[in-house]
Simulated assay, not measured.
Amino acid sequence: MSRRKSPDSPLFPIELPVPDFGFELAARRDGFWPVAGADEAGRGPLAGPVVAAAVILDPDAIPDGLNDSKLLSPEQREALFEQILATATVSIASSSATRIDTTDILKASLDAMRRAVDGLSTTARFVLVDGRDVPPGISCHAKAVIKGDSRSMSIAAASIVAKVTRDRMMARADATFPAYGFAVHAGYATVKHRNAIDSHGPCSLHRMSFRPFRQV
């Protein structure tokens, strides 16, 4: 993982992490290729699915600027999303609010990542997974990488695909449930969202197992 100075702090530059291809190349040296990165978006919101993505990058066509999706602007994420889809092998899976409620958010997230990996059109022989846990039942060798979306290019690409996909899903949900403002906050617990829940009650996209709804 390399680092770069933040352009927003010219006087007191902040060193930002920049993912590299080191984990992927290490796996290839050990005889495992291709390598996929897997990540999810949407573990924290009060509403909507958790979305996972698995990405196998082409080493000869890696988009410039890959990083943890949370460190990118919406415009940067959208541009990189299109580049990733054009140059990489990508698979996306999700777990609905109902699935989250009937299991729990960790199990639902890991299961979505497993299904994303299984859905790749090219079979990965090694998977780098963001976080502390390898999804149970994953079909190849795998390694959990803490803060992987800022350390591995493949995981960073997966984080971007998952985030953009989920944001688009929540924007579409806004048309069905306009009272909640999903297109603005994507289901996160903003003041506007909490006020809408107080006024209208929960809808079918809300995660009833989460703390604000447990007494409803």
Rank of each mutant, 00 (worst) to 15 (best):
A112N: 02
R151H: 13
T89A: 09
A47F: 09
L110H: 09
E78M: 05
H141Y: 04
D133T: 10
A47L: 11
R114M: 07
G137Y: 02
L71V: 09
I146H: 15
R132K: 12
I92R: 09
A47Q: 12
R151K: 14
L106P: 06
T103N: 03
E78W: 04
E75L: 12
L120V: 08
S154E: 12
R125Q: 13
K143D: 05
I105D: 11
A53N: 07
R99A: 10
L66F: 11
I105F: 07
L57G: 07
S154R: 10
G131R: 01
L85V: 03
S96Q: 06
V35Y: 01
D101R: 02
I138C: 02
P74Q: 01
A116K: 04
T89N: 09
V55Q: 14
S152T: 11
A144I: 01
G137Q: 04
E75R: 15
T98R: 13
V134F: 02
A38K: 09
A79P: 05
I62G: 08
A36E: 08
R114Q: 11
L120H: 07
I62M: 15
V127S: 05
Q76C: 02
D149F: 07
A142Q: 04
P59E: 13
V90S: 09
K147D: 14
S150D: 12
S121P: 05
P59R: 09
A88R: 06
A112S: 05
G37K: 00
A116L: 04
G119C: 07
D104W: 07
V90Y: 06
E82M: 10
D111W: 13
E40S: 00
D133N: 12
T98H: 14
I84T: 03
G148T: 03
I92M: 08
N67A: 12
E78K: 13
A86G: 15
I84H: 03
L128M: 05
V51H: 00
C140A: 12
K107I: 08
V51C: 00
L110G: 10
R114W: 08
V50F: 09
Q76A: 15
P136D: 10
L110M: 15
T98Y: 07
P74Y: 02
V129T: 06
V127T: 14
G131M: 02
L106W: 05
L110D: 11
A36Y: 12
M113S: 01
A36N: 13
I105S: 06
V134I: 15
D58V: 04
V51F: 00
I92L: 13
D101F: 03
D101P: 05
S154N: 05
V129C: 15
A93V: 00
Q83F: 12
H141L: 09
S73E: 01
S73Y: 02
R114F: 05
L120P: 06
